Each structure stands twice: as structure tokens, then as C-alpha cells.
Simulated assay, not measured.
Amino acid sequence: MPTILGQNQYGKAENRVVRITRDGATHHIKDLNVSVALSGDMDEVHYSGSNAHVLPTDTVKNTVFAFAKKYGIESAEQFGIHLARHFVTSQEPIHRARVRIEEYSWERTGNTAGGAAEPGHSFVRKGQETRTSEIGYDGERWRIVSGLTGLTVLNSTDSEFWGYVKDDYTTLEEAYDRILATDVSARWRHHWTSDETPMPDWERSYEQAREHLLQAFAGTYSLSLQQTLFQMGTRVIEHGDEIAEIRLSLPNNHHFLVDLTPFGLDNDHEVYAAADRPYGLIEATVLRDGAESLIPAEPAEL
């Protein structure tokens, strides 16, 4: 049976680059994990092994580090834009580029060794979320999807779950005051697609989207995690004019009240058993009215 080549791509994955910017005694740090994927006129390398159209992945790696010096890292999105534009416009066989970036945050600490305070160059890794970015470019149009993973949040009250379908296998008791906890994974797509229009302020946009996710989670009296998800997505859309859609994935990190009656003790919503698996998984996309959904359930192929 004859075969033909389908969708394909290649590149250099997980280039860890740390960029230090020195502002006198005060230093700034950007810590990125950059994965680059390229596609285009690559049939022949698969069919015959000819590398005539192949830019070595080692060159891709070198470009990541060189661009960290040449352009600096203002934001993950801006850095990815520099890289994607370079690969598509400098190499004729390359028609499309996708750059995925994880950013690890650090915060400055004080160093008082020897009695002298030196707060400008000592850092501690933040133990919260990982920022994500995906930059796609085909030589004409941009597709920028920002996001985060691993943002763990918990409401100790103001959450209920009752009135659900019950069948022969249902044992879960209805809850009128429960813990609601989740690890937020979110990806949001920006309206911006063309160099002919002003680019968003990527850093400001990320901080605002993150804050609105947290505010909506904290401020929603939840009757279901689905309701909370929709309120989180809605708040991001309503307060971020540059955002067209957001996709959220929220595991329900279950906390079950422990039965303490065998020990002669009451448990008035005080002691819970945290279960890490199995867990309910709630996922949905929230769109601006009239927008087309372009964020897939899983990260898209190039």
C-alpha cells in the first residue's frame, strides 16, 4: 500500500535560557524553557534523507541564546515573536514557526551576610504557577496564546454541590458547605494577529488575567465547579479587551469530611481528608460573543 507524508515538524525542545539584566546593583532575571518547532518544505528530507532544506536543530538552540543577548527578554511573548519571525523570514523552506515557552518566576530576597544588605542580586524561586506562551507565525499572521499552569487555589467555604443526577451507583452525599480546591490551567488567545496593529502589553495583560482569575475564584459563591470556571473565564474576557477566548482546565481537588464519630468527636467542617486521585476534571472554553474558538482541548499541531 503506498504511503504519503502527513503533517510534520521539527525543532529544538526545552532550551533552558536564563537572562540576567544588570541595572547597577539591582539585577533582574528571566528564566525560560523555550521549545521551537518549524515546518514547511520538508518532504524531501523524509523521503530521501536530503538535508538541503533543514536548518540544524543545534542552530535553533544557538539562536535562542543569541537572541536572549541581542534582544533581551522583555516578555515571553515578545521573545517568542522575535524567534518565530526570524525563522520564517530568514529561511525560505520554513513556512511556519511555533514557539512554546514556560516561564519560571523568581522574586528578590535580601542578603544580609556580613551585616551589609544587598537586596539586588539574591533571588528565591516562586512556588506558584508556571507562565506559558505559545507563539505561532506563518509569515503573515500571528497566533499568540498566553496562559499559566499549576496555580493552586482553595476556598474553605462558599461552595455547595447538590441536586445532581443519582442512579444505582451513586454514593456521594450532597454537600451544602464544602472545600473547593483546584489547580488552574488556563490558556487565552489574543486578538492581535498582525504587525499592522499595535501589540498588546504582554506583561500587563498576563498580570491582569491572572488577577481576574483569582478574583473570580474567590468571589464566586459556587454551586458547581463548572459555574466557577465560567465566572473565571467571563471575568478575564470582560476585563481584557485584547483577549478573544480563554480555555480553562480545572481538576476538582476533593476534600472529604472525615467521620470522627467512632472516636466520640464531632466534625463541624473542620477536619478533611485530601484526595489527590481520582479527581473530577472540568474543562471548557469561554468566548467573547462573536469570536471563533481557535484554542483546542490539547495544544495544537503546528
Rank of each mutant, 00 (worst) to 15 (best):
G147Q: 01
T63C: 14
I101N: 06
H121E: 09
I101F: 02
I29K: 06
R16T: 05
G290P: 04
T109G: 01
V36I: 13
W162Y: 00
V45K: 04
G127W: 02
H46T: 03
Y221D: 11
D183P: 07
K70H: 09
G150D: 12
E203M: 07
A13I: 12
P119R: 01
A284M: 07
T285H: 03
R96L: 11
W192E: 06
T59K: 11
L180A: 15
G264Y: 03
Y47E: 10
L151S: 08
Q208R: 13
Q7S: 07
T26A: 00
G219M: 11
A291H: 03
E242V: 12
E245W: 09
N62E: 07
V184S: 13
R108W: 01
F87C: 15
G114M: 08
R22C: 04
S146L: 08
H212S: 13
M199G: 02
D201C: 09
V34Y: 01
Y279E: 06
T57F: 01
Q9D: 09
E107W: 01
Q231T: 15
G6V: 05
R131I: 08
R19I: 10
R143A: 05
G110C: 03
L172S: 14
P2V: 08
N155S: 15
S75H: 00
V124N: 08
D58V: 07
Q91E: 11
Q226A: 12
E270C: 04
R141T: 02
D266K: 03
A66N: 09
A76V: 10
Y164V: 11
L180G: 12
R235M: 15
W142F: 14
T63H: 09
V124T: 12
L223V: 11
T89A: 14
Q128E: 15
V99D: 07
N33H: 01
D259S: 11
G110L: 02
N253T: 12
Y279P: 01
A216R: 08
L287I: 13
A37L: 15
P200K: 00
T170N: 05
Y279D: 03
L213A: 14
Q227E: 15
E174Q: 05
T228R: 11
A84T: 14
V165F: 08
Q227T: 15
A84V: 13
L281A: 10
G233C: 11
V36P: 10
T234F: 13
A300V: 02
I243S: 03
T109Y: 02
L154P: 06
E44L: 05
D41T: 08
A52H: 05
S133K: 04
L250V: 12
E102S: 05
V34Q: 04
G72C: 06
T130V: 09
T109I: 04
A274C: 09
E207Q: 13
N15G: 03
V60A: 15
H86N: 00
Y10S: 03
F217G: 15
L154R: 01
A117Q: 01
S222Q: 14
A244R: 01
R143N: 03
S105N: 02
F230S: 15
G110Y: 02
E44I: 00
Q78P: 03
P198L: 12
V184F: 08
L172Q: 14
T261E: 14
T3L: 05
D158R: 14
A216Q: 09
Y71K: 09
Q7Y: 00
I295K: 00
F256G: 13
G120N: 00
V286E: 04
R125W: 00
L302T: 07
I81L: 07
S222D: 14
H254M: 13
T197Y: 01
V165C: 10
W188H: 04
